[in-house]
Each structure stands twice: as structure tokens, then as C-alpha cells.
């Protein structure tokens, strides 16, 4: 493992984008596609960003390393597993592509939470955990693989098996901005995300 303090970055590009009707990560987001914006944001803080996708041909325009899922089970745990398995870094910030207003300023705080007894740091909003916007140690791979053997694909169960530091959204929003966990799954939310992003940039 190369660097224990500065994490790697993993973007999960799975999901069928049914409600959006098209791959959300390829949607234009101002001058970039959404995936490019997320990469650019992550790269402010992490060492290297890798992409987890089962359709790498759609991302040929990006120079980043792309890896498919290792298991053919369509769930978040599969993406997390593939990301950690292919990462070169001890710690990895894992991000889903449905958080268009993600702000990398949260990452150093997450890294601070990790120590010998804590290998996962995840945010929790009023709606529940945001497991795909969290920091994971590669050491958790063993436990994740056990879950696949047990056919348990619920990512939340990982936090029962490995003590996770749960960070309340309030704290992260204070570090970043109030819309950092805005979730985008529909065309209306896409429109809203662009408005919010414009407003945030104007404010900053």
C-alpha cells in the first residue's frame, strides 16, 4: 500500500439510471460531464481516482483506470468490493455518481476519524446512511468477501460487522455546504442540482 494518509478515490458508476432515462454520470454539468466534475472534485484531495463500471467503453474519453465489478450481483456492495480490490491505497474515499454536489472538503475530516479501531467512516443524513460517500480501509475487503459468501449483499450490514464511525450530516454540511448530500435520480433533480450548483458557485 502506498500512502496511508492520503486516500485513493473510487467512483462507482453502476446503477441503471432508470428514473433519469440516461446514464446520469454522462449528463452535462456546466462545462463537464457529471463524472468529470466528480473526478475533478475528488482529485483536489485524493491521490488517484479509479472508476468502477461495467461499461468502460462509455468512458473512453477519460484517462482514468476503469474496472468492472468482480461479482455479478447488482448492488452497492459489489461496487465497493471492486473498488477496494483494485485500489492501490490503504484508505479509499468511495463516491457514487448520484451526488452531483459532492464537495471534497469533507475528505480530510473523514481521514481524521480513521484509526486502529476504526476502518470505516460514513455519513448519516436524516434519511439514513450514505454508504457511497464514505471512507473505507482496504482491510475491510476480507469482511466484504465473507458477506458475499454468505449471500448477504446489504451494505448497511457491513457497519454491524465492522465498527463504523458514523458522522452526522450536520457536521459535514458545516464543513462543506448544505446541499452536499443532494441526491440526483430524476430529470427534475438534475435541473435542481444545476441550479444549486450555480448558486453555490456564485455564493463562493
Amino acid at each position: 500500500m502506498k500512502n496511508i494518509k492520503k486516500p485513493g478515490g473510487i467512483i462507482l458508476l453502476g446503477g441503471k439510471s432508470k428514473r433519469m432515462g440516461t446514464d446520469k454520470y454522462l449528463l452535462p454539468f456546466f462545462n463537464l460531464t457529471l463524472v468529470e466534475r466528480l473526478i475533478a472534485e475528488l482529485e483536489k484531495t485524493v491521490q488517484e481516482v479509479i472508476l468502477i463500471t461495467n461499461e468502460p467503453q462509455k468512458l473512453n474519453f477519460l484517462p482514468h483506470k476503469k474496472y468492472p465489478d468482480h461479482y455479478a450481483i447488482p448492488c452497492a456492495l459489489t461496487g465497493l468490493h471492486a473498488g477496494l480490490k483494485n485500489s492501490n491505497y490503504e484508505l479509499n474515499f468511495v463516491l457514487a455518481c448520484d451526488l452531483p454536489l459532492f464537495d471534497s472538503r469533507m475528505i480530510p475530516y473523514f481521514v481524521e476519524q480513521i484509526n486502529e479501531s476504526v476502518s470505516i467512516a460514513v455519513p448519516k443524513t436524516a434519511k439514513g446512511f450514505e454508504p457511497l460517500c464514505g471512507l473505507y480501509s482496504r482491510n475491510n475487503l476480507v469482511e466484504i468477501e465473507k458477506m458475499f459468501v454468505e449471500e448477504n449483499y446489504a451494505i448497511h450490514d457491513l457497519f454491524d460487522r465492522i465498527p463504523a464511525k458514523v458522522i452526522m450530516a450536520e457536521k459535514i454540511e458545516a464543513i462543506t455546504h448544505p446541499y452536499v448530500f443532494f441526491n440526483m435520480n430524476t430529470p427534475a433533480e438534475y435541473e435542481e442540482a444545476q441550479k444549486l450548483y450555480a448558486a453555490l458557485n456564485k455564493k463562493s
Binding site: 476519524q113 479501531s117 458514523v166 452526522m168 457536521k171
Partner: peptide, 9 residues
């Protein structure tokens, strides 16, 4: 007070 983070080791 508010709870900022927690874990159940």
C-alpha cells in the same frame, strides 16, 4: 448539545 458523530464498537 448535539451529537456530531458516533460509533458502536
Amino acid at each position: 448539545f448535539r451529537v456530531e458523530s458516533y460509533m458502536m464498537p
